[in-house]
Design a protein around this nucleic acid. Structure first.
Lengths: 190, 190
DNA sequence: TATACTTTTCAGGAATTCCTGAACGTTGAC
DNA sequence: GTCAACGTTCAGGAATTCCTGAAAAGTATA
């Protein structure tokens, strides 16, 4: 199994990008390969295509499975495990976002909430808590909004994005339904 | 300069989180410390508080400056450089998003565009290109939308987020202004 | 149950990243 | 100009992460 230059460059790029994130080069490349592959691949094919050891591929696939980014399937009459990346890029994006939330955002929110429960007994802590509160609010608000928006189906989401902010702003201009409550809340907050 | 337990746990958490991203522990901790600090700090204070070498702090601060996450300032009658994190968490978020776009998204888009220009001469490449095209579209659409939304001021953004998706969906129901164009485009695309 | 095929685990070497102290560079005060 | 205070650079050791081959474990077939 030989990679075409086109696929090669895609795979290499994702290897690089992977290492900018927590993900290592191997895992990035494996995912990239599965993403562009026209059919599911087994571990041996991947190992050969990318020139990684069989065990490295095995670990990489496990990692990808833990991120729910690959699907495991079987071919009739073949004992080997085949892997593929889901088709729908929007679904992939959703999975990625969800998984990152679980691993990064939620623990951070927990830490912040705990920190905010402490009764500060000195000036530095009082200030630190104010900062943490503002961070907590931002994260809370944006993740819950994101979760909400992600429930929309692809077509609706696409439309919303294409509309951009201009039309959405119009929605607020009316200043009729919800905004009143919003404004009141805002007025109470310091 | 001694950290209170409250600040300590915040700083340590960000050190950990930092290493999940490309950012290393040191840089994460320095940023966290500056974020909760009530006043700007100089490099020596940071080095002492976190028990890092002076040179390590120097490199960390340089990294943070390259991300535009810290502000450099001077105290009257003091030759040393003082650093602080901007107050406004929304602005911080914006900066972070912009910087990540520059470093990760833009190069990826460039790579994808280049790949899409190639005239594929075999089946695997034809399929790979289709996959890359769908990825390209998703990234293009979501980043341009994000850039657009980020131009809104904090108050408006807050309101929009609080409305959630429900109200935004209403906007589309009307199916009057733009959606026609959107639907046509969609119909043309395979 | 034995066999062949497949996947997983893991010790340890390779590669990379991190961090430090020492040397060097720069700047302002005297 | 000299000196002290401060910032930066960088070689190389420390720590971490990555990757591999060998061995073990698992599994379908006969």
């Amino acid at each position: 199994m030989n990679l075409t230059p086109l696929v090669q460059s895609f795979v290499l790029h994702f290897g690089e990008m992977g290492s900018r994130w927590g993900i290592n080069r191997t895992v990035g490349q494996i995912y990239a390969l599965l993403f562009v592959s026209a059919r599911p691949l087994n571990a041996d094919e991947i190992a050969e295509a990318l020139a990684f050891s069989r065990s490295n591929v095995s670990m990489g696939l496990k990692e990808l499975e833990s991120w729910r980014l690959v699907r495991l399937l079987h071919q009739p009459g073949d004992r080997r495990e085949y892997f593929s990346a889901p088709e729908d890029v929007w679904a992939i994006f959703r999975t990625l976002a969800e998984e990152r939330r679980k691993r990064e955002v939620d623990p951070t929110l927990t830490m912040l909430r705990d920190a905010l429960l402490v009764q500060p007994d000195n000036e530095p802590d009082r200030h630190a808590q104010k900062r943490m509160a503002s961070m907590h609010e931002l994260i809370e608000l944006s993740t819950s909004w994101f979760a909400d928006v992600q429930k929309l189906d692809e077509r609706t989401l696409r439309q919303l994005m294409k509309l951009g902010s201009a039309a959405q702003k119009l929605l607020l201009m009316k200043d009729s339904l919800k905004p009143a409550a919003t404004r009141n809340k805002k007025a109470i907050e310091p």
